[in-house]
Write a protein that binds this DNA or RNA. Sequence first.
DNA 1: GGCGTGCCTGGAAACGCTTGCAGAGTTCAG
DNA 2: CTGAACTCTGCAAGCGTTTCCAGGCACGCC
Lengths: 330, 330
Amino acid sequence: MADVARRAGVSMATASRALSNHPHVAAGTRARVLAAAEQLSYVISPEASRLAGGATGRVAVVVPHLSRWFFGALLDGLESVLRAADLDVLLYHVGDAADRRDFFQRLPARRKVDAVVVLGMPVHDEERARLELMGVHIVAAGGQVENYPSVSIDDLAAGRQAVDHLILLGHRRIGMIAAVDPAEPGWPEGPGRTLAYRAALAGAGLPADPELEVTVEWGGRHGAEAMERLLSLREPPTAVYAHSDEVALGAMRTLRRAGLRIPADMSVVGIDDHPMAELADLTTVAQPVHDQGVRAGRMLLELLAGGSDTEGVSVPTRLVVRGSTGPPRS
Amino acid sequence: MADVARRAGVSMATASRALSNHPHVAAGTRARVLAAAEQLSYVISPEASRLAGGATGRVAVVVPHLSRWFFGALLDGLESVLRAADLDVLLYHVGDAADRRDFFQRLPARRKVDAVVVLGMPVHDEERARLELMGVHIVAAGGQVENYPSVSIDDLAAGRQAVDHLILLGHRRIGMIAAVDPAEPGWPEGPGRTLAYRAALAGAGLPADPELEVTVEWGGRHGAEAMERLLSLREPPTAVYAHSDEVALGAMRTLRRAGLRIPADMSVVGIDDHPMAELADLTTVAQPVHDQGVRAGRMLLELLAGGSDTEGVSVPTRLVVRGSTGPPRS
DNA sequence: GGCGTGCCTGGAAACGCTTGCAGAGTTCAG
DNA sequence: CTGAACTCTGCAAGCGTTTCCAGGCACGCC
């Protein structure tokens, strides 16, 4: 930077101000500095910059699961806008509550990032407060809409789209496979998607049968087990609503093995529109995952640029009817 | 750090040396310093450290695709060992050749990382040379074994396991759906897995029919299209070998829609052991994806610790027979 | 014409760590 | 018993920026 300053005929102080877009720098001077920097193909050292009190140019992204499509897609969208803004992405995988505590405890210690984006998990108020206190912005995506910057779908609405679809087809006895994340006790989807199920039934005047609600861990395999439980009921349902496509896909495998036909013997609907859903002909409620990542990224950029604290936004979902749902066999 | 030094009753110089594992520090002193650091929950500032000439404690991970299971799993394994070693992961998504060039051009500018891990892509010699010149180590995983630090499967062997399985079942006319990555011209899987197919046929004395080899872009949808092409042949195969499970799953969807039974009318085998393969009852050649990430991480740690340059290692694959393959209908 | 007001700019002190250099002990061979 | 060779530790000089504080200057108003 000293070279740049010299070449531009100014002091380092001025050069710094010109480069970091500070006010109170004459237009001519700034231009000269920028030109000099350009010629010397000079790029600022983030280390030194940060050390002296500037920004790090880095954003931490916290993910609970790395190998699930949902989080990958979210990350994909997010990364694209962050990279375009010349921000580096620091990836943190927090598998369980311990990891999480660890993360929120250590991160602020020595400020490594300017902001953090939390994917697919709610952020506790206390954690939020702590980060904001240190001037680290925070945005959430793919979790639940809260009154802080976040973007996600409306689980209640999505769930209703799925269940109402089954009801509309004429199903009167509908099972639900609820998925919970073992690592994350307060998983937000659970409540919303479960509530949607109950509300839809109630709305249609259908009786609520606790037997029809089975809760398992997230994942295809568990979805398969849940379906077995449902099939073993004295009076099995004629349709199943799964909290996610992976779970639904697992359920379909059980049905296939049991020799039942889909949708003739059993309708299945999921949520997400996982790429596999199309291949398996699974009816589902599509959510714009990649887009949620993008929006979260933009929201963060705005915050970083000094924008005011936004509220959470909710993106729309859309029912995608495929071959896994149909009217019940009379 | 000054606090830590004071608490441990040593100078900052000694504290620094103790913390960064330098030689010439008495065991007792080091222990005292570490204890003090622990108590104060002190973590070193990478910025300052790097500024003063130390390491950054950061590793760049380069991924071509974020939302594919394979890369997610790889990343998962890698991240776990890196995090355990207190290294931060800087994520870079390089979608196409332009991104890639950009990455390798900009990264070394101001040294942001101590090392880079490239996932699922080969590293060109020139890129490798450039990084090593700057003292940045490099490791590859999930790509092709090369004579530089890398870990991956033996595509040739994996392909043979798959095709030989079909041959053993009695198939004489076997199709191949080769998948290429549009973004990565020199995709390494292609050659190895294709060669395996040809070698297996030749080994069994079966004729090579170019019609039976169809090449498509990676992905379930394209796998489905490829299967259509194969089915429209004058003399369709009785079994199909797909370069990856996603592609195979796509092919299965086409078969299902065409009303063909699996495996009675057509056997299908893939490679990867994608979680969905189990749900779809797909026979496949399993590769330890997560483990490859772990190994790559360990390899990197060794390199960072001053270990000598390792050669590439290849991890074993295993045929997993499920319901999608069976003898041909005589 | 004098003087208060802003706008620019430069000097210099951090920021938190690493490391070359040198001094003080310690050990060990001659 | 002496000197050489080590091992361990402290001092202080940076590393590349930012920012606080002041000084200079031009401008406009009384």
